[in-house]
């Protein structure tokens, strides 16, 4: 019993050593409790991720960190709230993929450029997944099938204009086929319909089909990420099958524009420390969230490319108004 508490103390000391920020706390920030805005509702994937990151940030900064869910409008309301939050470092927001898919639809009058991106936290790549009983075994099989049976291939996704709808259109575009996109209310019902054999494929994330693939009900034909998934190292990427495109949904941290550079630097440092917290890393692993850190500059470059990709595909889908 005693030994355990000693060990605990050592652990805490070690943690302080790893996180120099906590011990040598700069006077700039944080002087007040921190609020983190989540543009999605409590209990969802984004919320869970942010709450864990917030817990680690609280540990690092020794300040209260409150997560508020400002939701609605398919993410529009929450992103607007982050943009309009006071630029004094007390409010930090989690921005998500929808920040790039809402503007082309004319649903929000601002873009990622109206934010100050701090770091990318995670990227989840989609996979083209079919029923395990399907005779299709590769992207080429799928393309051949879709060409031989025009108007029969159906790809389920998580909603009109959603990230996986765009992913499906990108896949079809790259494979040179036409398919029918069936939007569902979230990824889960689309996956269920595929398990029941009511669709040809789905284009949702690896994490969302993971359990059914592991159970042998579904099989993935290819992952659209930059590298193979850690969960399924046997499934080849699109690139390995000769299809160059990569795509994925992402989550990151951003500030409203106008935060003072010295405060901004402290925030970035603290967030990186929170990201590196073993507890956060452990959580992300158990929840099958693919962590993909990028610093502010790399993240901004990533956002720029992602925004133009999304705009192009949405135009081809007829979903874009601009």
């Amino acid at each position: 019993m005693k030994r355990r508490s000693v060990l605990k103390g050592l652990g805490a000391a070690a943690a302080c050593g790893v996180v120099p920020f906590a011990s040598a706390r700069a006077a700039n920030w944080p002087t007040r409790p921190i609020t983190m805005i989540c543009p999605w509702s409590a209990g969802g994937g984004t919320d869970l991720l942010l709450r864990k990151l917030a817990a680690s940030l609280s540990k690092v900064t020794k300040q209260t960190v409150t997560v508020v869910n400002t939701t609605g409008g398919g993410g529009a309301i929450g992103h607007a709230a982050i943009m309009r939050a006071p630029a004094d470092g007390t409010t930090i927001g989690m921005i998500t993929f929808e920040l790039n898919s809402l503007p082309p639809q004319g649903l929000i009058p601002f873009t990622w450029k109206d934010f100050d991106p701090i770091m990318r936290v995670n990227v989840d790549a989609p996979a083209l997944t079919v029923n395990a009983k399907s005779p299709l075994n590769s992207l080429k099989d799928f393309a051949d099938y879709a060409k031989a049976h025009p108007g029969e291939a159906t790809i389920g996704n998580s909603g009109p204009g959603s990230v996986w709808h765009i992913a499906a259109a990108m896949m079809a575009e790259e494979l040179g086929v036409t398919a029918k996109y069936v939007p569902f209310d979230g990824a889960a019902p689309a996956v269920t319909a595929l398990v029941g054999g009511h669709l040809t494929a789905v284009s949702v994330s690896v994490a969302e089909v993971r359990s059914q693939v592991a159970a042998g009900n579904l099989k993935m034909l290819g992952v659209m990420g930059e590298a193979r998934s850690d969960l399924f190292p046997d499934v080849p990427t699109f690139a390995e099958q000769g299809v160059k495109a990569t795509f994925g949904t992402w989550r990151g941290i951003a500030l409203p524009k106008g935060v003072k550079p010295e405060i901004r630097a402290d925030i970035a440092k603290a967030l990186k420390a929170a990201y590196d917290d073993p507890e956060f890393q452990e959580f992300a692993k158990s929840a099958a969230l693919n962590l993909a850190y990028q610093d502010d500059k790399a993240f901004a470059g990533f956002l720029d490319k992602n925004a133009s990709d999304v705009l192009r595909v949405m135009r081809s889908l007829g979903l874009a108004k601009v």
Binding site: G45, L48, A188, S211, A214, A215, A287
Partner: peptide, 17 residues
Amino acid sequence: AVLLGAFVIQGLQPGPL
């Protein structure tokens, strides 16, 4: 649907497995 998340956090994947 939320409970599914709770299983996953425990390292359990509901389903045939």
